[in-house]
Design a protein around this nucleic acid. Structure first.
Length: 764
DNA sequence: CCGGCTCTCATC
DNA sequence: ATGAGAGCCGGA
């Protein structure tokens, strides 16, 4: 008998390599008369027996030789895909990701598939569920609905165009539409219908656009590389806010479409994808597929399928879209490449940005990384010539750049976080008819609730952190603020204690400012102005973010107060003053990336101002007006700041000049994580020692720690970390690869939750 | 003396 | 991961 064929199948579980399964040659012989023998294909899914149950797996390879005892190898149970879902290049990327991030191959495979395909559903999808007007519904008008049923009227109005509506269509236009849709369905005005994935769609009219010279030469640079050389090249497109990066993307995409190629565009997770899709569709006059968190499973499946089969040419998606298989991919674009949401922070901790560059390299196509404030890693790649650096230095159209100024608040009597000069500036700008935006990256009323008599502070029972005091609006029982306590690290909530648990005093003070308190203060100061607070608490409901930013953009609010979420993406053309209240944490943090983040945030928030013809003013309150990084940023701009910050990184031998891998461990027992990491460190060092002796080389790997995480206890778990750092990425990976199987076998590893974080971005 | 419960271990 | 099997205490 000839050698049986072995399928190498990636299955979920702690396996760094695929497992062996028989391709079932026997059955092949028995059923030769059956012309349509179903064979597993490389890149397709199969059901395989695993222990005593059936699990899903991905065939990574078909081989003549087994890596496992032949008698123990079981046959594949059922073939799901007759055609591959992933081609060799894409499988290569998944394999690379598994090895680079030290993540089990089966888990990488699962992360690369939409949920429904993970569950074994057919890759082909004929369509999805929609709602539409029934015959009866078509005879109705808005007048047939009670004047008082506002929500019902608004929902019904959406259907008057007679078109099919999917869940995300309705999500994009309405909030809390489900109950109204249910009512209409029960009444028989609406009916559910099964419609195709690809619907005809009418786009907004194409904008009458012309690219300016800078934009045009950026487009040309990328297109030339693609047309002439047809190979991989990475570009950093650095363009200040308002310089028209999106037009540059669209210019490139337009040309790719003419060549019949597809384009993958990654965007951060900020809920702006639907708006961006409409903008892309209007410009390109073609359908654009989207993959983001607001879609349900069948909508995702549809988008995935349309891209894979080449029915749609452009995909706009968040992090996980980087894995989508394309029929004919020609260009990759990453917008806001410095954004942290590209790094998955749990489980399979990949960077979609880095994977995208790797993907483009493997596909031999260009990749464009766009940002107004590029990450130091990317800038370093540009400075060393690995990436081609393209600049957009001017705001497109008539928009002017805002002026940035530092406000020295040392010794300044600060009323509720806002200095006198800032208050004066607010008054002036409001009088001149502009809007003011105050940025404070701390939600809630106050970050600390303290006993006035003994100094006791309300702490979270499960974390090493204070509970944030949140106000209950409108209630003011006895002059004190009514509210509750909430931990921002584990979301645990509790009532404000009636009296101090330590000294029984009933008097508490709120220490520090959050956005709620700031809102109170500002309302008192400017009683005739409309104040709008935009943070996670005021935008909890679906659609409310769009509603609030709409109010702000239409000029129906005078003063905007916001956290981080206000800093990204939204344009407020009438905002002429931006005040940043508290950015000093960024200057002296234990995290070496804090200054970089602070600079990116300052410029992002500044970018909200003066986008129309009005020039904006940006005032930054600080206790450290002489801090070299801060003054460089303000006086000379981001590039000068970045050069300086990169120099500091080089002097301190930190990324991007050294490579890091962080091993985390956490457990409910206070010391288990520490013990685990200590024994792991001993093993790693021992192995490293032997390796150096055997190879007669001196290689450098630094071991930092193990130390407790910046916040030792979080959600009741004690957390520790061990940092490995090296000038040589290969050495670092080799060391981890060799040790990883031992970690799985270590008895301590079962008591702790551990993870390997390659190129860690955040310490927390 | 048996069931239950932690600990251990392999999974192709 | 995760569920099955091995090794150790209470019920009457």
């Amino acid at each position: 008998m000839q050698n049986p064929k072995i399928a190498k199948v990636a299955v979920p579980g702690p396996f760094l390599f695929p497992l062996d399964y028989l391709l079932d040659a026997e059955q092949d012989l028995l059923t030769t008369d059956c012309a349509t023998e179903i064979k597993a294909v490389v890149g397709g899914r199969v059901w395989v027996p695993f222990r005593n149950k059936k699990v899903i797996g991905m065939v990574m390879e078909i081989s003549e030789s087994a890596d496992y005892e032949l008698s123990k190898i079981k046959p594949i149970e059922e073939v799901i895909d007759i055609e591959p879902l992933f081609d060799a290049t894409q499988l290569g990327l998944l394999n690379w990701a598994s090895q680079y991030y030290h993540e089990p191959i089966g888990d990488v495979m699962l992360a690369a598939l939409p949920k429904r395909l993970r569950a074994g559903e057919n890759a082909e999808i004929s369509g999805m569920q929609y709602w539409q007007l029934s015959a009866e519904g078509r005879s109705k008008t808005l007048e047939d609905i009670s004047r008082r049923a506002l929500k019902q009227r608004r929902v019904f109005a959406q259907f008057l165009d007679q078109k099919l509506k999917s869940e995300s269509d309705l999500n994009a236009e309405l909030e809390n539409w489900r109950s109204a849709v249910k009512t209409f369905t029960e009444k028989g005005w609406l009916e559910t219908a099964h419609g195709p994935c690809l619907r005809e769609s009418n786009y907004a009219p194409a904008p009458n656009h012309t690219l300016n010279d800078a934009q045009k030469s950026a487009v040309d640079a990328v297109l030339e590389s693609q047309q002439i050389q047809k190979r991989f090249q990475a570009f950093l497109l650095e363009g200040i806010t308002g310089s028209g990066k999106t037009e540059v993307y669209l210019g490139m995409i337009e040309s790719m479409l003419k060549q019949g190629k597809q384009v993958l565009v990654l965007v951060p997770e900020i809920g702006l994808t639907p708006q961006m899709v409409s903008r892309f569709e209007a410009f390109l006059q073609t359908r654009v597929a989207a993959l983001h968190s607001n879609l349900n499973d069948s909508e995702r499946h549809c988008a995935w399928h349309l891209i894979r089969t080449g029915q749609i040419q452009v995909l706009l998606g968040t992090r996980s879209a980087v894995f989508t298989p394309f029929k004919n991919l020609g260009l990759c674009i990453i917008d806001e490449e410095h954004d942290l949401s590209y790094k998955q922070q749990e489980g399979f901790r990949y960077s979609a940005r880095d994977l995208m560059v790797q993907r483009a390299y493997r596909e031999q196509i260009p990749v464009v990384l766009g940002s107004a404030t590029p990450s130091l890693e990317t800038l370093h790649n540009a400075k060393t010539g690995r990436y081609t650096h393209l600049h957009l230095k001017q705001r497109a159209g008539v928009a002017k750049l805002p002026s940035l100024k530092l406000l020295d608040i040392r010794g300044e009597k600060i009323q509720e976080g806002v200095s006198r000069p800032l208050k004066t500036a607010m008054t002036q700008h409001l009088q001149a008819g502009g809007q003011a935006l105050l940025f404070l990256n701390r939600r809630g009323f106050s970050p600390v609730l303290m006993c006035h008599d003994c100094g006791w502070q309300a702490a979270c029972p499960s974390c090493d952190a204070n509970m944030t005091f949140h106000m209950i609006s409108g209630q003011n029982a006895d002059g004190t603020v009514a509210g509750y306590l909430q931990c921002h690290h584990c979301d645990e909530q509790m009532a404000k204690p009636h009296s101090c648990p330590s000294c029984a005093s009933e008097e508490f003070v709120n220490v520090g400012q959050g956005t709620e308190r700031l809102e109170e203060t500002i309302k008192e100061w400017f009683p005739d102005k409309k104040v709008l607070r935009i943070d996670r608490d005021t935008t909890r409901l679906k659609g409310s973010m769009a509603e609030l930013t709409g109010i702000a953009q239409r000029g129906e609010a005078d003063i905007l107060i916001g956290t981080q979420m206000l800093a990204k993406g939204h344009h407020f053309p009438n905002v002429t003053l931006v005040g940043l209240l508290d950015i000093d944490q960024g200057l002296f943090s234990a995290d070496f990336r804090a200054a970089e983040r602070m600079a990116q945030l300052i410029l992002q928030v500044s970018g909200r101002a003066g986008r129309a013809e009005k020039a904006g003013e940006v005032l930054i309150q600080t206790h450290h007006p002489d801090h070299p990084l801060l003054t460089t940023l303000i006086q000379q701009g981001y590039d000068a700041f970045a050069t300086k910050a990169l120099q500091e990184r080089q002097d301190a031998l930190l990324p991007p000049f050294k490579y890091q891998i962080l091993i985390r461990a956490e457990a409910t027992h206070p010391n288990d994580g520490m013990l685990f990491l200590e024994s792991l460190k001993a093993g790693l060092q021992n192995y490293w020692q032997q390796w150096q002796e055997a190879k007669m080389v001196e290689a450098d790997i630094d071991f930092w720690g193990p130390v407790s995480a910046p916040m030792l206890r979080r959600q009741g778990r004690y957390r520790y970390q061990l940092m490995l750092q090296s000038l040589n990425r290969g050495d670092l990976h080799r060391l981890i690869s060799e040790m990883q199987p031992h970690i799985y076998n270590s008895p301590l590893s079962r008591k702790v939750r551990w993870s390997i974080d390659v190129d860690p971005q955040e310490m927390y």
